[in-house]
Design a binder for these strands. Structure first.
Length: 595
RNA sequence: GGUGGCAUAGCUCAGCUGGAUAGAGCACCUGCCUUCUAAGCAGGCGGUCCUAGGUUCGAAUCCUAGUGCCAUCACCA
C-alpha cells in the first residue's frame, strides 16, 4: 500500500474523530525543500467541510497522525500546510523491498490490450533528416514506455514507396544517371536517390523558367512542364504494372531501403512490422462503399464521396474521388482496418506524425468511430512539433536539411573530441572507444530531442550544436559511469552487499532524498505512458541524477567507516544506476561503464 | 477569415489533477580536484509566467476576450 493511501485513510479517520466530519478526499504534495518534512497535507480544501482556522486544524491533525500512525515521526504547520516527517524506517523498508528487483518500476506485459505504434513512415525518394530523427526517437521511445507500463506493443511503419515523388527520382535517374548505382558511386542508396530527386527539381525549374521566357504563364508552366508530365505518365505506367517502370522502381527503392536500414541501425530503432503503401494504397474503398450504404458517407452528383463532419465542428471531407480513386484518407481508413486484421489483439493505435497533420487524424479517427469499430476509441495521434533551423523550415529540395546520418557522425565526432580532451580512457581499446564515442554522441542528441515536450517545436541550431553539460544525455551517462566505478571498487574491496539493511540506521538527508526520488519511478512510467511523453522520463532521470550527484559530492560512500552505512550507500548507488539504465533504455539511450 | 497548437529568466526548457517565496540547464560572476571520474559539486546574478478581465480562500495552471508566432482548412501526401 502506498504511503499516500495509508495517510489518506488516517487523515480521514482523524477528521472523523477530532471534528466529527467526513473528508471527501485529502490532497498531498511533496514538501518543499525549504521546509522540514517529506509529505505535505494541504489543509485549505478541508475548510469546505471543517470550519475553523487552517493552522489549528493542521496542528490537531498533525498531533493525531504523529500519535496514531507509525510512519509519521514528526510534523509542523506553516500557514495551511501540514508538513509530515515520515520515519526513516519507512523509507528503509521501501528500499529494502526494491533493491533486488531487476525490473523495478516496470509492469509485466498483459496478454490482451495490444497497441500498435506507428512511427518513421518515410517517403522513399530522399534520405532521412533531423525531422525524421525526432519522429523515430519519439515513436520508438513511446513504444518502449508503453511496453514498460504493461502494454503489449507492435512497432510498425508504413513506407511511402509509391507516388509521384519516387517517379520524379526515377525519371531524373533515367535521364541524367548514366547508370549510376550505390556500388559505382560509393554513395548510400537513399542519398543517391535523393540526389536525383533534387536533380529533377532543378530540371523542372529550368523548364518552367524557359517556358516563361517563351511567354507561357507561370501557372500553366508549373503544371505543364514536360518533365513533370513525363513523371506523371510514369506514375500511370507504374499503376498499370508496366514492366520496365516497375523494375526500375524496385531497383531504386531497394537502394533506399538498404540506406534506411543502415540509418535505423545507427539510430537504434526497430520495427516489428513493415507496411508498404504500394500494397495498401488500394485498401479502404470497400469500407467507403459500405459506409455509403449505411449512411455514414454521402455521394455528390459528380460521384465523389464525402463525409459531413460539420456537427463535430469540422468540415466536409472527401473520402473518394469522383473517378473512384482513393485519396490519402481512403488509404488510411483501409490500412487501420488491415492492421487490426493482421493483429486481432490490437485495441488501439498510436500514430507518430507531425502536428501539421492534426486535422487529418482528427477526421480519420472520427470516421473510424462512425464506421463503428470498437478500437476506434483507442486511437491516438502522437503529434509533435516541427524541428526548425534558425533559417526556418528544412526543405530537402532546397538542400537546407540536416541529414540524419551526417548529424549522427558529427555528434560522435564531438563526443570524441571532448573525450580525448579529458583523457580518461587509457584502459580502453580503440574499438571500445569508438563504441563509447557513438554512445555519448547519440546520447546527447537523443536526450536533446526527447527531453522537450513532444508537442513543442524545437529550434535546432547546427552552429551551436548540442550541449554535453548540464541537463544533457552525457551528464546522465557520466553519472552512471561514476557509479559503475564505485561498484567495481566495492567489488574489489569485498564490500558485502548481502549485509541486510537495518531500519535502526539513521538516514542521511541525502540518502532519504534519493529513496524518495526512486520511489516515484513506477508512477513516472505510468504517467509518461498515459501522456505519451518521453520528456517525463527524461526529466525524472535528470532529477534523480542531480540528487545523486549532490549525494556523491557531499558524503563519502566507500570511505564510510560504518560498514552498514557503507553497504546502504553502495546499494543506493547501485539502484540509482539501475534506474538510470532502465529510464534511459525507455529513451533508447545506452549507458557506459566508463567515460 | 474558420479551426487547432504554442507563449515562463538574455538563451533552451520544467512546472502533475489550481496551493507555500515560480524551478533547472546554458551563458556570466565566486569558491571546491594530495580523498569514490571536475562531462561534477556549492553559491551568486537574472522573472510584468504575452496583455486585459473573470472564477476562487488561493491562478503560470481554469474561463472569456485580445496580441504575436506556427500549422491547417485542396478530388496533394
Amino acid at each position: 500500500m502506498s504511503i499516500h493511501t495509508i495517510l489518506e485513510t488516517k487523515v480521514k479517520v482523524a477528521a472523523r474523530s477530532i471534528f466529527d466530519a467526513e473528508l471527501p478526499s485529502v490532497e498531498f504534495q511533496p514538501t518543499r525543500k525549504d521546509f522540514e518534512g517529506d509529505i505535505t497535507v494541504v489543509v485549505f480544501p478541508m475548510l469546505r467541510v471543517l470550519k475553523g482556522n487552517p493552522v489549528q486544524i493542521g496542528e490537531q491533525l498533525g498531533a493525531y497522525l504523529k500519535d496514531e500512525v507509525a510512519e509519521v515521526s514528526g510534523y509542523n504547520v506553516v500557514k495551511g500546510f501540514l508538513n509530515l516527517v515520515i520515519s526513516d524506517s519507512f523509507y528503509l523498508d521501501f528500499f529494502n523491498g526494491i533493491k533486488d528487483l531487476s525490473d523495478f518500476g516496470l509492469v509485466k506485459e498483459s496478454a490482451k490490450d495490444a497497441i500498435m505504434v506507428e512511427y518513421s513512415s518515410p517517403n522513399t525518394n530522399k534520405p532521412l533528416h533531423l525531422g525524421h530523427i525526432r519522429n523515430n526517437l519519439l515513436g520508438y521511445s513511446v513504444a518502449e514506455i508503453l511496453k514498460a507500463s504493461g502494454k503489449k506493443v507492435y512497432k510498425a511503419q508504413i513506407i511511402n514507396d509509391r507516388g509521384i515523388h519516387i517517379c520524379k527520382s526515377m525519371l531524373a535517374w533515367q535521364r541524367f544517371g548514366n547508370g549510376e548505382t550505390p556500388e559505382s558511386t560509393g554513395l548510400k542508396g537513399d542519398k543517391l536517390v535523393g540526389n536525383y530527386y533534387v536533380a529533377f527539381d532543378k530540371a523542372y525549374k529550368e523548364e518552367i523558367a524557359q517556358m516563361m521566357a517563351d511567354g507561357v504563364e507561370e501557372k500553366v508552366a508549373v503544371k505543364e512542364a514536360p518533365i513533370l508530365l513525363e513523371a506523371q505518365e510514369m506514375l500511370q505506367k507504374w499503376e498499370t504494372g508496366d514492366k520496365e517502370v516497375v523494375s526500375l522502381w524496385k531497383k531504386m527503392n531497394g537502394w533506399v531501403y538498404k540506406g534506411f536500414e543502415e540509418t535505423y541501425k545507427n539510430m537504434g530503432v526497430d520495427f516489428d512490422k513493415l507496411y508498404y503503401e504500394s500494397n495498401t494504397y488500394l485498401l479502404g474503398k470497400d469500407f467507403v462503399a459500405d459506409g455509403l450504404k449505411r449512411g455514414v458517407f454521402y455521394k455528390k452528383d459528380d460521384g465523389s464521396v464525402w463525409i459531413d463532419l460539420t456537427d463535430e465542428g469540422l468540415d466536409e471531407k472527401i473520402v473518394l474521388r469522383s473517378d473512384g480513386t482513393a485519396v490519402y484518407m481512403t488509404q488510411d481508413i483501409g490500412t487501420a482496418i488491415q492492421r487490426v486484421k493482421d493483429y486481432p489483439d490490437i485495441n488501439g493505435m498510436v500514430y507518430t506524425v507531425g502536428n501539421e497533420q492534426d486535422y487529418h487524424f482528427k477526421v480519420l479517427f472520427l470516421i473510424l468511430k462512425k464506421l463503428g469499430f470498437s478500437w476506434a476509441e483507442q486511437l491516438h495521434h502522437l503529434s509533435y512539433g516541427m524541428v526548425d533551423l534558425p533559417s526556418g523550415k528544412m526543405k530537402s529540395r532546397e538542400g537546407t536539411v540536416v541529414d540524419a546520418d551526417d548529424l549522427m557522425v558529427d555528434m560522435t565526432a564531438t563526443a570524441r573530441e571532448l573525450s580525448e580532451e579529458l583523457g580518461k580512457l587509457e584502459e580502453y581499446s580503440h574499438e571500445e572507444k569508438q563504441v563509447l564515442y557513438k554512445m555519448v554522441g547519440l546520447g546527447a542528441l537523443k536526450y536533446y530531442l526527447l527531453k522537450v515536450d513532444p508537442k513543442k517545436r524545437i529550434l535546432f541550431n547546427p552552429e551551436e550544436s548540442v550541449d554535453f553539460q548540464g541537463n544533457t544525455g552525457p551528464f546522465i551517462q557520466y553519472t552512471y559511469a561514476r557509479i559503475q566505478s564505485i561498484l567495481r571498487k566495492a567489488k574489489d574491496t569485498n564490500v558485502d552487499l548481502s549485509t541486510p539493511l537495518e531500519a535502526t540506521e539513521e538516514l542521511h538527508p541525502k540518502e532519504k532524498e534519493l529513496i524518495k526520488q526512486l520511489q516515484i519511478f513506477p508512477e513516472t512510467i505510468q504517467l509518461a505512458a498515459a501522456h505519451y511523453s518521453p520528456a517525463l522520463i527524461a526529466n525524472y532521470v535528470y532529477d534523480l541524477v542531480k540528487e545523486f550527484n549532490s549525494f556523491y559530492q557531499q558524503i563519502s560512500i566507500l570511505g564510510e567507516t560504518n560498514e552498514k552505512q557503507k553497504v546502504l550507500r553502495v546499494q543506493l548507488s547501485k539502484k540509482v544506476s539501475e534506474v538510470i539504465e532502465s529510464g534511459f533504455r525507455l529513451l533508447g539511450i545506452d549507458v557506459p561503464e566508463r567515460m
